[in-house]
Write a protein that binds this DNA or RNA. Structure first.
Lengths: 123, 123
DNA sequence: TAAAGTAGGGACGAAAAAGTAACTATAAAA
DNA sequence: TTTTATAGTTACTTTTTCGTCCCTACTTTA
């Protein structure tokens, strides 16, 4: 991400959501309710421990998720959405609705969307 | 972005929007109407020609923007939102609303949101 | 006795993303 | 006549991201 010097709250929220797995994590927490770390990891297939930890920390710093650690000996940590996190549910729903519609319209057929397709891909 | 093998339309739409400048570009086209390349570039301060071109091409492939080239000698190219592009306006508005609210709540004060803050930042 | 699960932390390195600079063509303006 | 503008493309280089592997400490299970 470039050095946008933005002061623009939109930009901040985008940098928050834009990370690779972020919305997926929020979605799971919103849909399945609070979950423990391991369950969450299994619910987001393909994510690495490192990534999941990092994203959760970041969402926590933003006040979007809470973290509750039980000081038992194999520690049990649970994450959930704060009210602020629930604010995001609307955005996610709106996106999901569009995604559904576009899918029925066949937008995602030859799906080479998203990447910096041309310059340095697969060198 | 990792190799999400997703088949999930949400994922496709996220990969579409997630690029660094993408939403900003869409926002400008939605707010100011169709614009020529140069104007657009000036409206998204900090973006490089390369990036702007690439993002526009991608949005075009997704059917979100249209491109109209006048074959005059200094070529004049205009970009605008398709109806599909306008679908996204709602999502953007929803995000903008939240962003406003969070700003008044002071969420973005020590703004180190978004990045992979811990491991390799600023080495 | 050894292995597995829990919730991570840290180092390393490959790969991807994005900035910079240089180049294209032609016409109009200075 | 040199410069400027348009809308890019291409090559080169740097920066950032993210996956992989190894480590923790303790308990329960096989």
């Amino acid at each position: 991400m470039p050095r946008t010097p933005p002061q623009c709250p939109m930009d901040s929220i985008l940098r928050l959501l834009m990370g690779p797995w972020t919305t997926h994590i929020i979605w799971v927490l919103s849909d399945q309710g609070p979950q423990r770390f391991g369950v969450l990891k299994r619910a987001v297939p393909g994510i690495s421990t490192r990534m999941l930890t990092e994203r959760l920390r970041m969402l926590q710093r933003a006040g979007v998720v809470w973290r509750e650690q039980a000081e038992t000996i194999p520690p049990a940590v649970t994450y959930g959405l704060t009210p602020r996190g629930n604010d995001l549910r609307g955005v996610l729903d709106a996106m999901g609705e569009i995604a559904e519609r576009w899918k029925t319209e066949g937008v995602f057929e030859g799906d080479d969307l998203g990447g910096a397709a041309s310059p340095n891909s697969r060198l």
